[in-house]
Nucleic acid binder design. Structure first.
Lengths: 183, 183
DNA sequence: TGTACATCAGTGAACGCGCGTTCACTGATGTAC
DNA sequence: TGTACATCAGTGAACGCGCGTTCACTGATGTAC
């Protein structure tokens, strides 16, 4: 049965939101169209009135997940708080609501051109954002860009490492060491 | 038809080697038993005389991939050469022969306990190895362990970032920035 | 404002496909005599 | 050393399953008069 235009628009947004969360939690391959649709209260058939294919959804979901700049990081003096939140035990556990880059950078290298391209653009945007914030708004120069890259890579690498150790003690040691190295 | 014991042993080792390479290249989910067996010249049925399940193969393959210490890193003065090789364009491209941690740390978080446990052990071993090498053989203390963790996380994060950008210029900028930050 | 009709979001059965795993069978290996 | 037989690595058909995608159909929406 048909549904009002505004409801349909809500469904589309909800599909993107569900995909965005589920993809980060389980990866692209382990989430099916039916699962995403069910999350929103629809059947898999309805999905195809909103997106032409799963790949198209992945591309849009990447944009959704990475939209906006790193949570609340506006300038260099915010960095410590941002790093503390990023390298927290909560972020280690909450994959579905967490960083898309840490969650998906292992998957995207093996995906199609369209997906790789969307992810690459998001990374460029992220690095630009960090370089700018670390320069307190002044235009980025090479040194600040290098610091932005270092920060991004350390955060992602540290979070991935922490997510992959089973010992809580080692996990916390990793988080502390990475926080210290970004001070 | 049956095959000599030594041939069978070779087949087992070849299956592990093929799996080790293919898993790093494509991830656990995108490599099938039939593909691995075919790589060795066997059919999928033969696989099950060597391994009870795909999961068991994954566990053993993780051990295979991560066996031995970080390529040639024996002491702190080797670090620069190791870092240069790790953060090289060749390593960005050659995923199947490259670092298992960069290739699979995104996947393993979503896998079974047995796989997570094998991967976690490998990471602990890796960090221990780095902490020891960076201390030039002397017993590791907290500061050296922290430096080992920072090095490992930066290498993995930097490689993943470099693998995920489509622009060659940005890729090289990332590799340079990460090499500089580990000097 | 009320009616008639075209539109189209959503349903659910069906499709082809690839996957991990099982199993009856084959025939070379390797052992017991 | 030679023969008879048990073992077991490897084959290939078959299984159940979940997936992405298609499509005929439904019925509420929204538009034209």
């Amino acid at each position: 049965m048909k549904v009002s235009k505004s409801t349909a628009a809500e469904h589309r947004a909800a599909l993107l939101a569900a995909a965005s969360r589920l993809f980060r939690e389980k990866g692209f391959d382990k989430v099916g169209i039916a699962e995403i649709a069910a999350e929103v209260g629809l059947t898999h058939g309805a999905f195809y009135t909103h997106f032409p294919s799963k790949e198209a959804l992945c591309v849009e979901a990447i944009a959704t997940m990475t939209r906006g700049n790193p949570v609340g990081l506006k300038a260099a003096h915010d960095l410590d708080a941002f790093v503390a939140a990023y390298l927290s035990p909560q972020h280690v556990i909450a994959r579905g609501d967490g960083c898309a880059f840490a969650a998906l950078s292992g998957d995207t290298v093996r995906e199609t051109e369209a997906i790789r391209s969307a992810f690459s653009q998001a990374i460029e945007h992220l690095i630009d954002g960090f370089a700018e914030a670390l320069g307190d708004g002044r235009p980025a120069n090479a040194a600040r860009r290098a610091r932005g890259i270092k920060t991004v890579a350390s955060l992602i690498g540290g979070l991935l490492l922490a997510r992959n150790v089973t010992s809580v003690g080692l996990r916390d040691e990793i988080l502390s060491a990475m926080k210290a190295s970004l001070r």
